[in-house]
Simulated assay, not measured.
Amino acid sequence: MNADISVCIATYKRLDRLDALLGDLLAQHCLPREIVVVDNDAQGSARAVLARHQSAQSACPLIYDIQPEKNISLTRNRTVALASGTWLAFIDDDERAPPDWLASLLASAQAHHADGVLGPVLPVLPDDAPAWIRRGSFYDWARMHTGTPVPANQLRFGNLMLKADLLGRIDPVFDPRLGLTGGEDGDLLMRLVKDGARMVWNDEATVTEPVEASRLQLRWILRRALRGGQDFARHFLAGRLQPPSLRNRAVFFARALLQLLAAGLLSLLTLPAGRHHSAYWLGRACANFGKLSVLWGWHYTEYA
C-alpha cells in the first residue's frame, strides 16, 4: 500500500529536469499516493513528460493540470487543490530525490510529532564552475540536527512535507500577490508557525539541485540576495517575525542601513583575500539594500 502522501510539483519549462525527478519519485521505497504536477506553461509543455511515465500498471497515479497565468503562488495553490493525501510533500521541478526521501520525511514527522518537516537541498555545481564560486558556498543553506525546530528565518520550500489539513483552513494558501516576486513559501510557513504549527528539520532527507550555468554569475547571486532581503522585510512588516511596532520598524531599518554600509566596506577590504570573500559581503550589502527598498515600494519580480 502506498503512503498517504501527495507529492506536489509546480513546473515551468524544465522538461528534462522534470523527467528525471518523476523517475526518482516512481522509484521511492515509500511510494506516494499520487504525484500532482501543475504546469505554469500555458502551452502545456510538460504534458508529454508525464505521459512517458504514466501507464495503466503504474502503482502511483500522475495528476496533471495547467495553470496558465504566470504566477508561482497560483500554480502551487492548484497543486494543493488537486492533492488528496493526508500529507503533502513539496519538491522543486529541478531537484533529484534519493529512493528513501519520502520514507525519511514521514518517519521524521511521526517520530517528532511534527506538522511539517524540512530537509536539505544540496547544490550540485557543474565541473566547469569557477573556482571562486566553489569556494564561496553561495548556494548552500543552513543545516541543523534532525528534530530541531526550524527558525522562522530558515523556513522555505524545495524539500518539505506538511499535514494537508493545515492548508485546508487557509484561502488562499500561497499569496498570489507574491507570485512574481517570490517569498510566497516563507510567507505561508511563517503564518502556519505563528498559528502553532510545529516545523522540524530532518538532516537525512536530502535532495539535490543542479546549479544552472546562468546562476554561476555574481549578478545572479546579488539579485537573489536582494530578493531575499525584500522577502525578509515584507515578512517583518506583515508581523511574521515580531510585532511591527513603530519602534521595531525604526530599529529594523536603521540596522539594515548600518549593515548595508558595513558590508559594502567589507566587500572592498576583503577583495585582496579572494573574490569569493568580496562577493559574500556584496551579497550581504544587496540583502540589506533589499530590506530598505521596500520603504519606497520596489519589488524585484524575479519570476516575471
Rank of each mutant, 00 (worst) to 15 (best):
P244D: 04
L265E: 08
A262N: 12
L106G: 09
L31T: 10
Q230N: 02
G290V: 00
L246N: 13
L26M: 15
L102D: 04
Y300L: 12
D19M: 03
N248Q: 14
L257F: 09
C286Y: 03
M190V: 14
S73R: 04
L22N: 05
A114W: 08
R191H: 12
A254W: 05
L218E: 15
A97N: 05
E69L: 13
K291L: 02
P149Y: 10
K13G: 10
P272A: 10
A83V: 04
V117P: 04
C286F: 02
G179R: 03
A42I: 06
V36G: 04
V200I: 14
A131V: 10
R47S: 11
F253W: 03
L188N: 02
P151S: 10
A285R: 01
H235E: 12
T181Q: 06
S55G: 09
M144R: 13
I91W: 08
G158N: 06
R76C: 09
R219W: 09
S245E: 00
L162V: 06
C8H: 06
F138G: 00
A304G: 15
V36N: 03
L160I: 06
N202W: 03
P272R: 05
W101Y: 11
R215G: 08
W296M: 01
M144Y: 15
L167A: 11
F252E: 00
E204P: 04
Q57C: 11
L22R: 06
W298G: 01
R52S: 14
H276K: 04
